[in-house]
Write a protein that binds this DNA or RNA. Sequence first.
RNA 1: UCCGGAGUAGCUCAGUGGUAGAGCGAGUGGCUGUUAACCACCAGGUCGGGAGUUCAAAUCUCUCCUCCGGAGCCA
Length: 430
Amino acid sequence: MKEYFIQNAQDYVGQTVTLKGWAYSFRKGGKIWFLQLRDGTGIMQCVVTKFDADEASFELKNVITQESSVIVTGEIKAEPRSPGGYEMLAAKVELVSLADEYPISKKDHGTDFLMDNRHLWLRSKRQHAIMRIRHTIVKAIRDFFDDREFTLIDTPIFQQAATEGTATLFSTDYFGEKAYLTQSGQLYGEAGAAAFGKIYCFGPTFRAEKSRTRRHLTEFWMVEPEMAYYDLDMNMDLAEEFVSYIVAQVLEHRQPELQTLDRDISKLEAVQAPFPRISYTDAVKVLTENGVEFKWGADFGATDETIISNQFDRPVMVHRYPSAIKAFYMKRDPEDDKQAMALDMLAPEGYGEIIGGSQREDDIEALIRRIKEDGATEEDYAWYLDLRRYGSFPHSGFGLGLERVVAWICGLKHIRETIPFPRTINRLNP
RNA sequence: UCCGGAGUAGCUCAGUGGUAGAGCGAGUGGCUGUUAACCACCAGGUCGGGAGUUCAAAUCUCUCCUCCGGAGCCA
């Protein structure tokens, strides 16, 4: 059976087709009514008149409600007066199911109300645009790595130990044993890199931090590539190529959606490699020059990140952070032990950190020393240390937070709109 | 955890001691080109919960709850 979708309307001009969807909105007149039909791919204006449609179809105007499911058959025409440029002259409108009074009207609603109705809110134009851009970003991520000799290695969500030791994790009972929901797949990714050379994992990540800001979710998606024989510079080369590719793909495939969101396209078009790279030490100078009192050794706060990223029109990579504020597995700078071979990528326009990564420590003695400094034991990291014991190798990787990238590319004020069903400190439902 | 803000009709809000309000949405009627349509009519309230002050509390006081924003922490 032939299926017809609204997004392909230009191919149907002059044809009589059947569209299946929901009544997004309508205007009712005495002898004519307009039905905006939503089918998940787009919105089609259907014109139902007393003369062109059968009587039962026309009289539906007296009963149909917003979001009722309907099947409409009619001829597609190019029509400049229609919002989408095309419209259907309906011959038949079949009511599949009459909807109860729909909670979401076209007027303003508060975010909390909309989030309580997130399962319905997803039907709206704006949310539709965001989710389709998210989809394109996910596809770009997979295509990018799949086209560059990376192998997908899925890493476990239940983990026995924290990856970085600092963050608060969700714990759960695992048949009498304590297990944590993953904070990162990286350690497993390193095992993958030793087996396959270049790998990536891409899945949900959990943080139990009681963060309450527009940049935080308790459950979010992270993609983490890990590359054998990559040093910090190669890591940064890959990261900038990766992010420029994602932005380019969205610009190529999602112009209407960006327009729906009123996104300033020129800001995205500026995102071209190479990205500026500055050391942590230079970033501190930038802060000092901007009147911020900042001591070398501290971590950047949200406003510090904004000041740094505002110096540039594209993402900036800050590298060589103080080792004291970075994780134990990051390689130390051979030229200065106080610095770790870490990199953070800060998105423009104040969207903050979208990538965190590093060259990994490949010296087993240095690694053991740091594990002990953190109060852990060699046994805790037995299998991880094996990776250094059996053919240690220089390697690097990074993690990119999907939702922050979606928020940035879509120009959203809050990260909670970037994922279909956000999980935040105060939201577990719907 | 800390700091700040909010809670009144289905929704968005106004209402600072004296009879509970508006717009939108719902309902009814009208309209052959609507784009958040328009016109007319109409229904709709535990003012977040509890306690207190007062002749009188949505309004003042105390307390609890819920939500929002920010800090910290992070992608």
